[in-house]
Computed example of a mutant assay.
Amino acid sequence: MTQPPVTCQVCGRGPDPATEGDPPLAWVLDTEAGRRRWTCPGCARENVRAIEAKLDSQWW
């Protein structure tokens, strides 16, 4: 079973195409409503307080 392509849940950006396999370590993975959701480093920096407070993504 193949995994869907990794894209940022906030901006829609994907990881650098030069990196194959798992997304880079700087990407944030969370699970919301049973779904895996990825956040790129830029969006994670902008929303770090909401992420650490474990707010639903609708709040940020």
Rank of each mutant, 00 (worst) to 15 (best):
Q9C: 06
P23Q: 11
R37W: 12
V10N: 03
R49W: 08
P23F: 10
R35Y: 03
A33E: 15
C40Q: 03
E20Y: 15
T2L: 10
I51Y: 13
Q58V: 05
N47L: 09
N47W: 04
C43G: 00
E46A: 12
V6Y: 01
D56M: 10
W60F: 14
E52V: 06
C40D: 05
R37D: 00
E52I: 06
W59D: 14
A50F: 14
I51C: 07
R37H: 13
R36T: 07
Q3E: 05
V48L: 13
A18N: 12
A44F: 08
A26F: 15
Q3M: 03
M1K: 12
P5V: 04
R45Y: 03
Q9E: 11
R13L: 09
R35F: 02
A18L: 13
V48D: 09
P4V: 08
V6R: 05
W38T: 06
R13N: 10
G34S: 00
G34W: 09
P4W: 04
V48P: 03
P41L: 15
V10M: 07
W60K: 03
T31F: 06
G42V: 09
W60T: 00
D16R: 04
E52Q: 06
P15I: 08
A50Q: 14
D56H: 15
L29Y: 12
G12Y: 01
W60C: 05
R13S: 09
T19Q: 06
G34N: 02
K54S: 07
P4A: 03
S57A: 08
G42R: 14
N47C: 07
W59I: 13
W60A: 01
I51H: 04
D30Q: 15
D22C: 02
Q9I: 03
R49A: 13
A26M: 14
T2K: 13
W27R: 14
G34Y: 10
C43T: 01
T31Q: 11
I51Q: 03
D16S: 03
Q9R: 08
T2Q: 08
R37Y: 11
G14N: 12
A44C: 01
P17D: 00
P5T: 09
N47A: 15
P17A: 12
M1S: 12
P41V: 15
E46H: 01
W38A: 04
G42Q: 14
C11D: 00
R13F: 05
R45S: 08
A50R: 12
A33I: 14
P4L: 05
W38F: 12
V48C: 02
L55T: 07
V10E: 00
Q58D: 07
A53H: 02
S57Q: 14
G34F: 05
T31S: 12
E46G: 05
Q3N: 05
G34P: 00
K54G: 05
C40Y: 03
Q3R: 11
A33L: 11
P23L: 01
I51W: 10
A18E: 11
